[in-house]
Design a protein around this nucleic acid. Structure first.
Lengths: 343, 343
DNA sequence: TTGTATGCGTTATCAC
DNA sequence: GTGATAACGCATACAA
């Protein structure tokens, strides 16, 4: 055992006067090896506090048992949950997770993808950043023979496994609920329309209005209101109209919905009687505001598990038995105080 | 370029009729190489879509530029924030993050530590799981020559870098603020006393009372009230006393504080005039309750950044110039409506 | 400036 | 069963 360099199978071999190959076999369990020597090897490995060098092993075996994950923000509830779900399954399979965060910047996303390719991860799981319009870097992943799985915010043109929420349906359900509660002038806070998820939510909104014979007013649709501040600003604008809306669907996020609620409180507008509010994501705080906020639960942890399972299914069924496909998880509308005026 | 195996520096060398070493030098920028050939190498690397194999490089160089992080739960706000902070700094330095989650289980924590050692990460950052009483696996990390940095929940006996919140001081500040606002009978909702962080918060409470000449009443100290429900139950009990408190410090969490607020509202007790409420953690919702809740911000993202910076400081100052030490981050008291009766 | 040779630690293929 | 040997892809000390 060298003083500083860490103990290797060589050291064990030397001590036992056998060859490194024997040690390797004994430790990995591959190939023939006498039970007695195996036992001996195990013991000395333990005694010497030997730790297998995964780096060397990976190089030799041509696989890393590692999954790379790229999300816009780690510390956003939804993404943290998805990551937790992926970790859960990956851990069972003995896989590690390398996490990158794009900070919603395309440049950082591209760099992260390259880092992960260089690391030879076996799969890259990604939810694209908001300012990604070009997906060459993702095509590159596929070209390198690395599995690519997209979730939530997906580049639709890319032929990959995708796990998404049925945003259109969830949005439709939310609007239908509002209508059933007697709201007739429903405004929409929408997100960047270059992202499919926000287009889908808008479509659900439009479809629901049409199906229930309600008119679509362009004034009622506010773009890019996806932070608390922007949600608040949008609300001030909407409530300033002569013909102000009686409900606001913050399809972008619960934070946006929170902004709406704050403004309503400031203006002494009663929620839900005078104004209905519906958010999106089921953030923890929605349950405890006054009133609590109706929102959409995306089953984010399950989403992560689904992603991981797709990957393992694929590599276990060897070959590309499973074609590119899209798995849609049906979100659930959580009805709470902010929209319940017909009790 | 082999059909399936990925392009290597060999392929580039072959194409250019030079040696792999030249390619390696040209690409890494180490060692002498003619500008012309360097240019040529870069171009063909690009053309062939070459991706450096980090695994091989790591093995050769004996370093991985990787940090391992182990937290009880990824999808818990505080931890997600810390991870985001670490990522932020690590990314700038070209380091990757491997994330493990212990699920509060010692067994999983031990396994994760071993995985990370095997991966030859250069540093392991950990917040220990609640059921960890034995720290052999952590000592092992140190013995292997891997940096170990603990944060928030730390094994105090271990001689490592530690980053924690100054819970005692934050708690002291909170109580002092309450006293300054004229509250004289301050109750404490405390967390599990086997965790140091909760003991420290209690100590800050006691010290502040003493320093201001206020008596400590055992009746005013309620154990294990760290959910909304438990906070509510504790409040009902406290407010039922003949000599009821005029302020409650929910040192466990904002959720607990919320329970207090709800009960106060139910009982028509005015906050802050009749009852002061202070929480802990600065959860998003504390800002939007009525009244908004005074609380303690833990600077969790900064905590992550501090952790990462400690590591980089250490490796950049080469050698163990920086001895084991504990960095205490001073949390900030966020004063809001629930305690502001002297405006 | 370029080429040669060697090793990082492990595993797999062969022959014995 | 066991041992010798090559190879994974890259980086570097040394020679040319």
């Amino acid at each position: 055992m060298n003083s500083k360099k860490g103990v290797t199978i060589y050291d064990i071999a030397q001590q036992l006067k056998i060859t490194p190959s024997m040690v390797s076999r004994a430790l990995s369990g591959n190939g023939y090896v006498n039970d007695a020597t195996r036992q001996l090897v195990r013991e000395t490995a333990e005694a010497l506090n030997y730790k297998r060098n995964t780096v060397a092993s990976n190089l030799r075996m041509g696989q890393t048992k590692t999954i790379g994950v790229i999300v816009p923000r780690i510390n956003q509830n939804f993404f943290a949950n998805v990551i937790a779900g992926i970790e859960n399954i990956a851990y069972e399979k003995g896989y590690s997770l390398i996490i990158c965060q794009s900070d919603e910047q395309n440049e950082k996303e591209v760099k992260s993808v390259n880092t992960l390719i260089n690391q030879r991860v076996e799969c890259i799981v990604i939810s694209v950043s908001a300012d990604s319009y070009n997906y060459k870097h993702l095509q590159n992943v596929i070209d390198q023979g690395i599995q690519l799985i997209q979730f939530d915010r997906v580049a639709e043109d890319l032929d990959t496994l995708k796990v998404i929420n049925d945003n259109e349906q969830a949005s439709f359900d939310a609007i239908r609920h509002l209508i059933e509660q007697g709201y007739k002038k429903i405004a929409l806070l929408e997100g960047p329309q270059n992202l499919a998820i926000f287009r889908q939510r808008k479509n659900g909104y439009l479809r629901a209005l049409k199906q229930h014979g309600l008119p679509v007013k362009d004034d009622y649709i506010i773009e890019n209101a996806w932070t608390k501040e922007l949600g608040a600003a949008a609300t001030k604008k909407l409530l300033g109209f002569n013909d102000a809306p009686d409900a606001i669907f913050a399809s972008t996020s619960d934070f946006s919905a929170l902004g709406v609620l704050e403004v309503a409180n400031q203006l002494n507008i009663k929620v839900p009687s005078q104004l209905g509010i519906c958010g999106y994501s089921n953030e923890a705080f929605t349950e405890i505001t006054s009133p609590s906020i109706t929102t959409v639960d995306q089953y984010s942890v399950d989403m992560g598990k689904t992603v991981a399972n797709l990957f393992f299914d694929r590599i276990e069924e060897q070959a590309d038995a499973i074609a590119a496909k899209t798995v849609s998880i049906k979100p659930e509308l959580i009805i709470r105080g902010s929209t319940s005026r017909m009790v």
